[in-house]
Simulated scan of single mutants.
Amino acid sequence: MAKQWTRWQDWVALVVGVLVALSPLVVTTAGEPGALTTLIVLGVLLAATSLWSLYSPGVVATEYVHAVLGVLLFLAPFVFTYVGLGGAAWTSWIGGIVAVVAGLWAVPVSTKAHKELAQH
């Protein structure tokens, strides 16, 4: 049976979410208000869903949410026009890729945990 707080992919997503949310303290977002808001909001959402997934390892939907948030994070510099802000853009791109990989990597593990919980 899957244990709470043990899936490494969710811990990776949590760390990425926290780092993205806190990144405006380190990288410049000046001149692009969309960058500041996007990094904080998507980072907090990623961290929150990671905590939910760590607490409820049998909920498969949260892993897909990580992947979707990762895609949104990757596309954000283009949509909110902060490609020119190197630190903020790279934070979005790298954080987005890691979130997608971690989320999709956890889907089979979460699906297995869901099936185990359904049998009990």
Rank of each mutant, 00 (worst) to 15 (best):
K3T: 05
K3H: 13
K3W: 11
Q4D: 08
Q4P: 10
W5G: 04
W5P: 06
W5I: 07
T6K: 15
R7W: 11
Q9P: 01
Q9D: 07
D10M: 09
D10C: 08
W11T: 01
V12A: 12
V12T: 12
A13W: 07
A13Q: 02
L14C: 05
V15F: 09
V16L: 10
G17I: 01
V20W: 02
V20G: 03
L22V: 14
L22K: 10
S23Q: 03
S23K: 03
S23Y: 01
S23N: 07
L25D: 03
V26K: 12
V27F: 14
V27N: 08
V27Q: 04
V27M: 04
V27D: 05
A30W: 13
A30V: 05
A30S: 13
G31E: 05
P33L: 14
P33E: 12
G34S: 06
G34A: 04
G34R: 11
G34V: 02
L39Q: 09
L39K: 04
L39M: 15
L39V: 03
G43A: 07
V44P: 04
V44F: 09
V44W: 09
L45A: 13
L45K: 09
L46K: 00
A48G: 11
T49Q: 12
S50P: 04
S50M: 08
L51E: 09
L51I: 07
L51W: 09
W52R: 14
S53Y: 06
S53T: 04
L54G: 07
Y55H: 15
P57T: 04
P57A: 14
G58I: 04
V59N: 15
V59G: 11
V59M: 13
V59D: 15
V60G: 08
T62M: 10
E63C: 13
E63T: 05
E63K: 15
Y64G: 14
V65T: 12
H66V: 00
H66K: 15
V68F: 13
V68E: 03
V68Q: 03
L69Y: 02
G70A: 05
G70T: 07
L72Q: 06
L73R: 01
F74I: 00
F74E: 06
F74D: 03
P77Q: 08
P77V: 00
P77M: 08
P77H: 05
V79L: 15
F80R: 09
T81Y: 15
T81R: 15
Y82H: 12
V83K: 07
V83D: 02
V83I: 09
G84F: 10
G84A: 14
G84Y: 04
L85N: 02
L85Y: 06
G86A: 10
G86T: 11
G86H: 11
G87E: 05
G87P: 12
A88L: 08
A89Q: 10
A89P: 07
A89K: 10
T91M: 10
T91R: 13
W93S: 01
W93Q: 07
W93N: 02
I94R: 07
V98R: 09
A99G: 11
V100N: 09
V100S: 09
V100M: 14
V101Q: 13
V101G: 10
V101F: 09
V101K: 12
